[in-house]
Amino acid sequence: MLTVDFARLPVGPGVRVLDLGCGGGRHAFEVLRRGADVIAFDMDQAELDNVANMFAAMDKAGEVPPDASGRTVQGTALDMPFEDGSFDRVIAAEVLEHIPDDMAAMAEIFRVLRPGGTAAITVPSFLPERICWALDEAYHTAPGGHVRIYTLAELSAKLKATGFEIGPHHHAHGLHSPYWWIKCAVGVNNDDHPLAKAYHELLVWDIMKRPAATRIAEAVLNPIIGKSVVLYVKKP
């Protein structure tokens, strides 16, 4: 399940990409499939071990184009171990809402991106996120959880103040917002609730099969209740 639109963030052979806060590696895997050189960066070494194993499995299965590379690096978004201008592209998907000093992280993204490079920044959309916070306090108070709700205007203003040129944006995952509202309504940690389980099975089916009906439904819902907003910015 990709949040970033790679038509707006083109990657390919010879392009150096940082997947900041890579988590399970979903964007890093797609970058590698497209032939770019990607570093999956995260604080969680266990997640990085799984990503490294998948990189190796992809290579063994012949899914990695010639000369493309994928590796993992552990660290913090507030002090990344990379030289200035190391990357042509940076992906920061659902990261900034976890970081108290988000502008320090934005400054690090700006630093490691080369002049003329592009970053894709994704955060939870305001309305779906606000509803989740209202329904269940545990959704955002758990350790490592979300510390703020962004409006698109706030996110754009902070990135502009960091030095970025603000580009286009879009919303994603309109079908996922109702799932999280259900989860928060029944208890965000209550994975066994029948309604939550049924909706989760629907989402898994949709991700695997991608039928036309749900693709159309999500395209309609994205601008209204898309779970994520994606903003593309450029370093001058």
Rank of each mutant, 00 (worst) to 15 (best):
P100G: 06
D192K: 09
C22M: 00
F6E: 12
V38P: 04
G167P: 02
D49N: 14
Q74W: 04
C22Y: 06
I224S: 02
Y139F: 15
H171T: 07
G226K: 03
K197R: 15
H169I: 04
S177Q: 01
W180Q: 02
N189S: 14
N190H: 14
F110K: 00
A105I: 07
Y179F: 15
A138R: 15
R114F: 01
P115G: 06
A134R: 00
F6N: 12
C22S: 15
P194A: 11
Y179V: 01
L152S: 08
I224K: 05
G75Y: 09
M106W: 06
A46T: 14
M54H: 13
D191M: 07
F29Q: 03
G167E: 07
L203R: 11
D101C: 03
F164M: 02
E165Q: 11
Q45C: 00
A134M: 12
K60V: 08
H173K: 04
W133G: 01
D136H: 02
K183M: 12
V123G: 01
M106P: 03
D67L: 13
A77H: 02
D5N: 15
F164G: 03
F29L: 10
A119V: 12
F164K: 01
V230N: 09
Y150P: 02
R16S: 12
N53Q: 13
L202Y: 11
G144P: 04
A198G: 13
R34E: 10
H98D: 07
K209S: 14
